[in-house]
Design a protein around this nucleic acid. Structure first.
Length: 586
RNA sequence: GGGCAUGUAGCUCAGUGGAUAGAGCAUCAGGUUCCGGUCCUGAGGGUCGGGGGUUCGAAUCCCUCCAUGCUCGCCA
């Protein structure tokens, strides 16, 4: 089944050819959703764009086009308005048929893509030598969401976490492990996972205060890079501890599992990468470092800016590792698209490594490497979110705070309504609502801008928030409980009849999920999906306000039950693509 | 100084060439309290940072200026 917009485009293309000839077969009909419901559902703006080419006033062009335009299966007769807009309004019969087909489709009318791509989403890729904090939140949430959506529409998606598991910061941790937990080197049982953040802090504190310790840390880095067996074992212990601790937080957040392929994985390839750049004539030695000079970048003195791939001391840095990853993904993984959800402060870094990857011939025109930058999380004061002491807020603390706020809201409500619920119910609802609110608040804004983190706003029961949408879902389940409705078995003769305005508006919106997902797979902006789901909830609430369901006479009753069910299923699917579960009661 | 972002209603933000620029919150005024009102309807509120340009048409594209943020050779 083609989406409505695709079908209409075909009709318009045919009309263009019939009216103006074969030269017009590939003219974009500029078909977009109507800017205002009073103009209908879709509008084609092609007439205005053709005035010069055709040499007639746009209104005349529109009239000619409409004469050759056959959309009678989908729409009422097209109308022309203003300077030459062609307005299209979908017929109820068409909507009813489409919705009925949707009723029996687990994909809710969203067809899988025709040519699936192999895609890598590179996330959440934290540096595990540091405690997990706010800075790790967005990549996890956004990356997980993008991966879920691409997989759902049919792409072959690999989630790969390019964890920072190598380099200077590990010297500090290894040295601390050796001095404070020597027994850990023989058995991992002794080191409690809960101590991980304390462990990090102690190491850092010691590093800042103790010159002797700094020297031990530096030495550990040298030993690590030299492949010293005992040092490698210590390194591995630290990595495993981090990995397990990180996983616990990701589980709490509902982040799906991913492959950990960190910086250390690429160590064996780094010399080849540099050698290949050398062979290609891209490498220049400057002040003892091996560099690729970048096109379009200058330093403060106006001289060309280098990307250093081998340091004066012979070591490699993160640019080298990222280049090795690009090369590996092209040559071994054979990807067509790689997506990096990473903060916008690294925008230059990605432009630079992509440029070098392209000049080295690894990245070709047949593939797409794309950085999807995101902005900062700010506090109430509009400044970067920090604890009172000025440190980054630990992620666990942030999430627990959201759950605690959700619990308070819930308990207050239960008391006001005189409801009794079990401790398990309260725990579960508080966790789902709290975590969902954090994720939704993040995803519902344009990725590229900063946003202010506020428990009050994200947990608000009204407005564009997770609780509002989950509540819309709960309302439908309420109907099902009250009326003892089994949505799976409404009967073979169940039909949708659209009469009320709110029913038509809701029906049209339900059919647009595919169009929205199509947009999101292109521009990778999850807030478009959030916007869609929010509008769906609003339109459902308007319908719910206006149209009784259980008390309605047949055939309206069954028809409305079907609309309720389709809304709930669309919300559930849409939210799941954001990484957010639903609740039956809240 | 260079590069890149961002600047839209009191606040938080949608809107990357189409008609009278939208939503949520807040404010004010109504409705409903019946399938869970955690709802619905309406009102007020905008020189889309300023200026210039391209276009039949610009918040959107180009130039310029202003403000804020990030970033600019061996950290990631």
């Amino acid at each position: 089944m083609n989406s409505t917009i695709a079908q209409l485009k075909i009709c318009l293309a045919q009309a263009l050819v019939a009216t103006f000839g074969d030269d017009y077969a590939n003219v974009d009909p500029i078909l977009v959703p109507a800017s205002n419901p009073k103009f209908g559902d879709y509008q084609a703006n092609v007439a205005m764009s053709l005035t010069k080419k055709v040499g007639k006033p746009p209104r005349a062009i529109a009239e000619q086009l409409v004469q050759n335009l056959d959309v009678s299966d989908l729409c009422h007769p097209p109308t022309i308005a203003g300077p030459g807009f062609i307005n299209l309004t979908l017929k109820p019969e068409y909507l009813q048929a489409e919705l009925q087909a949707m009723q029996f489709d687990p994909r809710l009318g969203v067809a899988p893509v025709e040519s699936p791509q192999r895609v890598i989403v590179d996330y959440p890729s934290p540096n595990i030598a540091k405690e997990m904090h706010v800075g790790h939140l967005r990549s996890a949430i956004i990356g997980d969401c993008i991966a879920r959506i691409l997989a759902f529409v049919g792409h072959d998606v690999q989630r790969i976490s390019h964890v920072g598991d190598w380099g200077t910061p590990f010297g500090m941790l290894i040295a601390h492990l050796r001095l404070s937990y020597p027994e850990a080197l023989t058995s991992t049982e002794n080191l409690d996972l809960g101590d991980l953040s304390t462990f990090y802090r102690q190491a850092k504190q010691r590093f800042d205060a103790d010159a002797e310790f700094r020297e031990a840390a530096r030495l550990s880095v040298v030993q690590l890079q030299a492949g010293d067996v005992e040092t490698l074992r210590a390194w591995k212990i630290v990595c495993e501890l981090s990995s397990r601790s990180y996983r616990a937080t990701y589980d709490l957040m509902g982040i799906l599992s991913f492959i950990e392929r960190g910086e250390s994985f690429y160590n064996p390839f780094l010399p080849e990468v540099v050698a290949e750049l050398q062979q290609l004539g891209l490498l220049v030695e400057d002040s003892g470092a091996q560099c690729v000079f970048l096109e379009g970048f200058t330093n403060k003195d106006g001289k060309p800016l280098p990307l250093i791939v081998k340091k004066t001391d012979g070591g490699y840095n993160y640019a080298t590792t990222d280049l090795a990853a690009i090369r590996y993904r092209v040559q071994v993984d054979r990807v067509q698209r790689v997506i990096y959800p990473v903060g916008s402060e690294q925008i230059n870094h990605f432009i630079q490594i992509f440029q070098v990857g392209r000049r080295a011939g690894w990245i070709t025109d047949e593939m797409e490497f794309v950085h999807t930058p995101f902005g900062l999380i700010l506090g109430d004061d509009g400044q970067k979110l920090k604890t009172r002491s000025g440190d980054a807020v630990p992620l666990k603390e942030l999430l627990d705070g959201a759950i605690a706020h959700a619990r308070q809201d819930l308990e207050k409500r239960l008391q006001e309504e005189g409801r009794q619920e079990s401790a398990d119910f309260i725990d579960h609802v508080a966790q789902v609502v709290g975590i969902s609110a954090v994720k939704y608040a993040d995803l519902s804004q344009n990725r590229t801008s900063n946003y202010i983190f506020s428990y009050g706003k994200m947990l608000a029961l009204q407005g564009n928030t997770a609780p509002y949408m989950i509540y819309a879902y709960v309302r439908v389940q309420g109907i099902s409980r009250k009326g003892q409705i089994d949505f799976e078995n409404l009967g073979a003769d169940a039909k949708i009849v659209l009469q009320e305005e709110t029913e038509l508006v809701l029906a049209k919106h339900l059919l647009q999920l595919g169009e929205v997902l199509d947009l999101v797979t292109q521009d990778l902006l999850p807030n478009r999906l959030c916007q869609y789901l929010f509008e769906l909830s609003q339109k459902f609430n308007q319908f719910y306000d206006r149209c009784p369901v259980l008390q309605a006479e047949e055939p309206d009753r069954t028809s409305r039950l079907m609309l309720c069910d389709l809304t709930a299923r669309t919300l559930k699917l849409g939210l799941s693509l954001l990484g957010i579960p639903v609740l039956e009661r809240m």
